[in-house]
Design a protein around this nucleic acid. Structure first.
Length: 532
RNA sequence: GCGCCUGUAGCUCAGUGGACAGAGCGGCGGACUUCUAAUCCGCGGGACGGAGGUUCGAAUCCUCCCAGGCGCACCA
């Protein structure tokens, strides 16, 4: 049975332990098939988990503990019964009970062979396609106004948003990335005036923009805005973010009049207000300022036009990726959707927290007003695209992060991004030598502990990805990639691939490992090098 | 005052109900005639901000409190 998570727009196939749903259509994975068999044996849904201790088996389940209450029997007794039934299964080698009622399972090497065969057969699609509904989703990200270069904060927005977009696309949704910018507001006027001042050799006006880039723009001809936009696009491209579309506020603003008739508006103090409180807003909003305040449409007016535009363009879902300082708009967007008669569930606002940098142990002070910021380009110049993307996305988006620039730039074993990449490069090295040699997933009778750990880790991948997708938490991938690399490096150190008796199996194993490492990295925009 | 986010090892952070809480960095000590030592192995290090509650079981769920960050404009 698939379990629909309508809020998240996705349907998962793998076990949904975090939703509380028990039964799942997991026939596609080796773990899932085992869960199904055990479910039949137990007469109740069985969810397997990976114990942290090796002495607790390959997999374990707490089903006896769950059943104890309903069946009015001691959990250990139930577990003992299940253990007896479980060992009768061909794929279960050993089953033990442990207080207060756990059932621990050790699996046969045949199971490991099946699990690996399945990964090999899935190929590049391993872990993909967890969404059943092929929704169209727009992810709007970065969207900084072109008054200056993309900063490190914008870089986190992009690294995070792009990774979410990659996850959604991998799950099977049709994803488009959009950049929205204000090309007309007063900030833009201040920006233009600042460049003009620089061209005249004057200091920037009050409330203007300063910084080296203003002088660089002053050296170019014409309106500085297109130049700035071009530079932003280049920076983001280098950061491996490709936008499908660029939305201009000025263009959208022309559609405001046709929308006003559909809204419940009124005039007060010379301004045009919308009665948003009727839709749950905490206060009514001004849409068009009074003449003495310039008579221009407000940002809120633009929000309304833009939101309608997104949904009318055919996106089933619109995701806004915003800095935490914009958290106030989250409710506002829901209000807009209701005012316009759209299902608010189609609007999703994801907030990410701020970024701090440290150099030499000290926090790098940043002030946007003085043009004294660390830009995306500078950050990338210093630590590389791979390290930049890794560090910006490796932590939960709800977490304020502090990046140690000295560590991030270090190309050594201290740096987890290279630790993972090195595992990939090592495998690539083996496979170069293994050209033409046969690989086979069929497992030998005896498997080394490192082989078992590696297969189990690979088997975790589909659930890791699916969960990262529904939770909008791409940081699970770097975390997983480190563990996978860890299992591989240990395997590599203790076991030999080429020339070993298990060569064919191990070739299949490392080939699958390489693919999953590469995929884990790709989903967060990090490259997987063939050589290091 | 109201709202959102966060408090886990010296530092940076994983861990959204299970078994003695994990990783990286930093500290200490070992392993290279081998498919890449950017690796591996070992040792130290924690009242999971605090107090209650729910549960067989809580870092995880609920309530309150404390601390930090960020918002609550006819600013963009």
């Amino acid at each position: 049975m698939d379990v629909e998570l309508p809020l998240l727009g996705l349907v998962l196939h793998c076990s949904l332990r975090y939703t509380g749903m028990e039964v799942s259509d997991t026939a596609r994975t080796a773990i899932g098939r085992l869960e199904d068999e055990l479910t039949r044996v137990a007469g109740a849904p069985v969810v397997l988990e990976r114990p942290s201790k090796a002495e607790h088996g390959d997999y374990a389940t707490n089903v006896a503990l769950r059943l104890a209450g309903a069946r009015k029997r001691p959990p250990l007794e139930i577990a003992a019964e299940l253990a007896e039934a479980a060992v009768a299964l061909p794929l279960v080698e050993r089953a033990e009970t442990a207080p207060p009622g756990f059932l621990n399972l050790w699996l046969s090497s045949a199971w490991f062979g099946e699990a690996l065969a399945e990964i090999v057969a899935a190929g590049a699609a391993y872990g993909a396609g967890s969404a059943t509904a092929r929704e169209r989703v727009q992810v709007e990200m970065v969207s900084a106004n072109p008054t200056g270069p993309v900063t490190v904060a914008g870089a986190r927005n992009g690294a995070y948003g792009d990774s979410v977009a990659r996850l959604l696309a991998f799950a099977g949704l049709a994803v488009e990335r959009e950049y929205y910018y204000n090309d007309a507001g007063t900030q833009m006027e201040r920006f233009r005036a600042s460049v003009e001042a620089a061209r005249r050799g004057e200091p920037p006006p009050e409330d203007g923009y300063a910084g080296e880039y203003i002088h660089e723009l002053a050296a170019l001809d014409g309106d500085p805005v297109p130049h700035m936009l071009h530079q932003i696009e280049k920076s983001l491209e280098r950061f491996r973010i490709q936008f499908d579309s660029w939305a201009l506020q000025s263009e959208l603003a022309t559609h405001l009049p046709e929308l006003l008739g559909n809204l419940d508006t009124y005039e007060r103090d010379g301004a045009l207000w919308v009665r948003s409180t009727a839709f749950g807003d905490e206060k009514d909003r001004v849409l068009i300022r009074s003449p003495e305040r310039g008579g221009q449409p407000t940002y809120e007016a633009a929000d309304i036009v833009y939101l309608r535009d997104k949904l009318e363009r055919g996106f089933d879902r619109a995701i806004y990726v915003l800095g935490a300082d914009h958290h106030g708009v989250r409710g506002w967007y829901q209000v807009i959707a209701r005012m316009l008669g759209y299902d608010p569930e189609r609007i999703e606002v994801i907030l990410y927290q701020l970024v701090h940098l440290t150099r030499g142990g000290d926090v790098v002070k940043m002030s946007k007003r003085r043009g004294d910021v660390v830009t995306l380009d500078e950050f990338v110049d210093e630590v590389s695209v791979d390290a930049a993307r890794w560090y910006l996305v490796a932590r939960g988006h709800d977490q304020t992060i502090t990046i140690d620039v000295d560590l991030a730039r270090e190309k050594s074993e201290k740096n987890p991004v290279y630790y993972v990449q090195y595992a990939h490069a090592r495998i690539a090295g083996i496979l170069r030598r293994a050209e033409g040699m046969e690989a086979a997933a069929e497992a030998p009778a005896e498997l080394a502990p490192e082989e078992r750990d590696l297969v189990k880790r690979l088997a975790d991948f589909p659930e890791i990805v699916a969960e990262a997708t529904v939770r909008r938490g791409p940081h699970a991938l770097p975390t997983y990639a480190i563990r996978l690399a860890d299992d591989f490096h240990r395997f590599y150190h203790h076991q030999r691939v080429l020339g070993s008796e298990a060569q064919a199996f191990r070739l299949a194993l490392v080939r699958a490992t390489r693919a999953v490492i590469a995929r884990s990295l790709d989903l967060v925009g990090v490259e997987a090098p063939e050589r290091m």
